[in-house]
Amino acid sequence: MDRLGLIGKPSDWLIASHYDASTLRERMHIELVEIPIEEVTSLGEVEGGEQGALVIYERLRAIVDQYQLNGLTLRCFDLLTTVKNTGCIALAKLNAEGIPAACEGDVPTLITMMMAKNITGCPGFQCNPARVNTETGQMLWAHCTIPYNMVESYTLDTHFESGIGVAIHGELPLGDYTLVKVSGDLSRIFAEDVQLTRNQYEPNLCRTQVWLQTKQVIPYLLSKPIANHHVLVRGHHAQSFLKYLG
């Protein structure tokens, strides 16, 4: 049984990212462990740069050990007003260490990241759709953290929405990837093999920004998306994901 920590409740804006704990237990042998956000916010205000971000990492690492977690999702925006820094570096490090770690208390995305680890042995990049080109099939996806072991290089920046703390602008290798998402009750899954064609770095977007060449993603996203966040995984594995839930 995998133990996944839900540190704080899902963010208020995740209105379609619900989950069914009993289905997750029965079909994926996942136990969700609810952990109060105060276990992190009790740190109080930390230093506002990388040093403070590493304090958050150490606290999350201790929570992983204390609760014997195999993965976690963090209601990270609560840190902005309490700890006055971000969870971006902490999640990047945990993911690189083999602990799937998702932002915003998003359980379906964490489940998708666990699937990615089980199927490919690799971490996944939790990302938002940011732009679409319906004529070419090109799409821009972005987020403020990314597993350190998915990038060729990175620089540190502030977190997009808040302008504070530390976020990561990563540059990913070009080539084959899979874009995937499963719903929190496991009733739906979307997976498509895509190409990462370009990295970019613009303001007014989350800091890691990648362009994907897609086929079916855009019509799916503009009509029947499985919520907002999706997961990008290195390599072409769409068929393996689609078979995973039987």
Binding site: W13, L14, I15, N128, P129, A130, L221, P225, A227, N228
Partner: peptide, 8 residues
């Protein structure tokens, strides 16, 4: 991103 969550 927000539009996708709302449409879902």
């Amino acid at each position: 991103a927000a539009s996708c969550e709302i449409l879902s």
